[in-house]
């Protein structure tokens, strides 16, 4: 028995020396070369499987296996398998490189003025191979009306995302929304439009064809002209009944021709806004 022990130990040592093994890189960056060191002797088949890559090649044990940058472009987990008599495996992660582009989602593209939490933006930084950069980075958001900054906010990415939300401004017009991260920037535009009409005022006069009635320039409560095409409803009430006419705003003013021969009360409304009443006497 005592004689057998040294023999067993020698055999085990010999097997261990002959068996292949490998060491995967502790970390690797997308698009950069990496190496896997192997030990043992003789030939083996090397397999690499990862996101977007799968290949096998013959390698000499005891040397380094060079992983080309082009095979490590996608961030994620990679599996290396080395097979001679038996197979050994190792896994390693490839992480995203430096931010090279920003995906910037801004909503909405068109918004009424003076609305709380109406404008929002989300930024996702990607490296040159479109891997999501998960390392925290500071993103600066800025909103401009013309050249005047109306909102600025800095936010650190968390899990690869930074975002903001704010109210729309008081004036109609283009709102420029900028996001920047280091040297990278992205720009979007939000069209701010007038809100609902406010303080509708009408005037009218009797003509041969009936009553011609029109609004004063229609504006929202902040004084912005309400967009053309917004519908204004005129209602004529006389002893014989009631009639309504819908008219779109054209060049800031809505007009309608009402057929009402008797004494008439005309009212106006647009959306939830009501205007003044107009009393017109009967046709002479």
């Amino acid at each position: 028995m005592r004689r057998l022990l040294p023999i067993c130990a020698a055999l085990c040592f010999a097997v261990l020396c002959a068996a292949q093994d490998m060491r995967a890189p502790a970390s690797a960056v997308a698009g950069e070369d990496a190496t896997i060191s192997t030990n043992g002797s003789g030939k083996a088949t090397f397999y690499l499987l990862g996101p977007g890559v799968s290949y096998k090649s013959e390698v000499g044990l005891g040397s380094e296996v060079r992983l080309k940058a082009q095979d490590l472009q996608n961030a994620g987990e990679y599996f290396a398998v080395l097979c001679s008599d038996t197979c050994r495996s190792a896994s390693f992660y490839v992480t995203a490189g430096k931010p090279a582009s920003l995906t910037f989602l801004v909503h909405p593209s068109r918004v009424p003025v003076g609305l709380g939490d109406a404008v929002s933006g989300v930024v996702l930084p990607f490296d040159q191979f479109r891997n999501l950069v998960l390392a925290p980075a500071t993103v600066s958001f800025q909103l401009l009306e013309g050249t005047a900054s109306v909102f600025s906010h800095s936010s650190q990415t968390r899990d690869g995302i930074a975002w903001f939300r704010t109210a729309s401004q008081k004036s109609a017009g283009t709102l420029q929304v900028d996001a920047s991260l280091g040297d990278l920037s992205a720009r979007r535009a939000v069209q701010q439009v007038a809100s609902d009409p406010c303080n509708l005022r009408i005037k009218g006069e009797r003509t041969k064809a009936g009553i011609l009635v029109q609004t004063e320039p229609v504006r929202d409560c902040a004084g912005n002209p309400v967009p053309d095409g917004t519908i204004v409803t005129f209602t004529a009430t006389e002893a014989s009944g009631r009639s309504t006419v819908d008219a779109p705003i054209k060049q800031g003013i809505a007009r309608a021709q009402l057929e009402a021969p008797g004494a008439t009360v005309i009212s106006v409304a647009s959306g939830v806004a009501m205007g003044n009443e107009l009393r017109i006497g009967a046709q002479p």
Binding site: L105, H107, S120, D159, R165
Partner: peptide, 13 residues
Amino acid sequence: VFYAPEGDVIELH
């Protein structure tokens, strides 16, 4: 872990 204000992207872990 993240659902965008306008619901146009969601991040899952």
